[in-house]
């Protein structure tokens, strides 16, 4: 088997470059084509990966050397692009969210099965090298019965620059609950393996932007822990203003009868500042989540193995995300 040909669909999210970098470094894969409506960004990316640019993703899908696609377009296009790719018999890595409605999720799950391709939605925390290991501490009873979880997820994003579309509801479909909280929700579901009973969420920051940029979400699991998630696009460390290029933070506290464990997932960083710098710079030197995502995806294609998080996982997370939005709207907890 030759290298797996990867087609990049959409350059809206910075994650696309992270994935693409690893796809080009990995000996099993090669980026062969890029599609984006914007000619300049499309051409630049094509050059960076020695690939070809197409303005229309359908052209990319018609290429025989494309075996799999990596979708990082604006959220509202995800469902349609995923469905078209699956029908063209391409394996799909789609950045969260997979879709914005449960109906679309069901359609995608069905089509994935029918066409015998892999569908992968890489939620970050469970693919994070540090956080993924916490699960074994829960399972081997190191912390005792898990009673509560606190999850701080800060993914700094700016209303300026290439990812400003996130703040436009007509393109993103939601704010930080959908784009940040969903990752932590997936992690909680994966970690506890319990059924959510009810969810309560409060969101703030809509005054200047159309989407929320700070939220607190609390989920009560049946016979399980109380999980509270702080999800925000704020929090980048820099002098005077929020730095959207900062790596952000993922910190998880597990509270059990025997122990409390705190894991700072992005602790492996270098803080750099000097006299001629007006801001502190953070350089992450740990294993990026995107590396593990790319390897997991390629392995499942090469070995023809089941992959998670898949469409079903994405659907369950979205169910809770939608319930959280409902809770914000009605101002009270929502039963699942």
């Amino acid at each position: 088997m030759g290298r797996i040909g990867i087609g990049l669909i959409g350059l809206a999210s910075r994650s696309q470059y992270e994935y693409a970098d690893w796809f080009s470094e990995n000996p099993y894969s090669k980026v062969v084509a890029v599609s984006d409506e914007n000619k300049q960004t499309g051409m630049e990316a094509a050059q960076r990966y020695s690939a070809e640019w197409h303005s229309d993703f359908n052209t990319l899908l018609s290429r025989e050397d494309v075996d799999a696609v990596c979708i990082c377009s604006e959220n509202v296009y995800h469902a349609k692009q995923v469905l078209t790719s699956i029908r063209a018999k391409k394996h799909v890595l789609c950045d969260n969210p997979l879709a914005l409605t449960l109906k679309d999720c069901d359609k995608i799950i069905g089509e994935t099965k029918n066409n015998g391709v892999k569908l992968f939605v890489p939620f970050r925390p469970r693919l994070n090298a540090a956080l993924s290991q916490l699960k074994s501490l829960v399972e081997d009873d190191t912390i005792g019965d898990l009673r509560a979880v606190y999850f701080l997820a800060l993914f700094p994003r700016s209303t300026q620059g290439s990812e400003s579309w996130l703040f436009d509801h007509s393109k993103s479909g939601g704010g930080c609950i959908l784009n940040v909280g969903s990752h932590a929700i997936d992690y909680a579901l994966w970690l506890t393996k319990k059924k959510p009973e009810r969810i309560y969420a409060v969101a703030k920051g809509k005054t200047n932007e159309k989407t929320e940029n700070g939220s607190v979400i609390t989920i009560r699991f049946e016979k399980g822990p109380i999980v509270t998630i702080v999800a925000s696009w704020l929090g980048g460390r820099t002098k005077g203003s929020v730095d959207a290029t900062a790596i952000g933070e993922m910190v998880v506290d597990l509270i059990g009868y025997k122990r409390i464990i705190t894991m700072d997932a992005y602790h492996q960083k270098l803080d750099v500042y000097g006299v001629d710098q007006d801001k502190e710079e953070q350089i992450y030197w740990g294993m990026p989540d995107s590396t593990l995502a790319v390897t997991t995806f390629l392995n499942s294609i090469v070995r023809d193995e089941e992959i998670h998080p898949d469409g079903q996982d994405a659907k369950v997370s979205l169910e809770l995300v939608l319930a959280a939005y409902k809770s914000v709207e009605v101002g009270s907890p929502v039963k699942m």
């Binding site: 005792g144 009673r147 509560a148 606190y150 309560y200 409060v202 969101a203 703030k204 005054t207 700070g214 939220s215 607190v216 609390t218 509270t228 702080v230 509270i255 059990g256 009868y257 025997k258 122990r259 409390i260 101002g331």
Partner: peptide, 18 residues
């Protein structure tokens, strides 16, 4: 969880761990 006008307050009390 406390819902203020422009702020969410979250307060955790934990006396769970032996």
């Amino acid at each position: 969880t406390l819902d203020f006008k422009d702020v969410v307050g979250f307060i955790e009390m934990s006396r769970t761990t032996t």
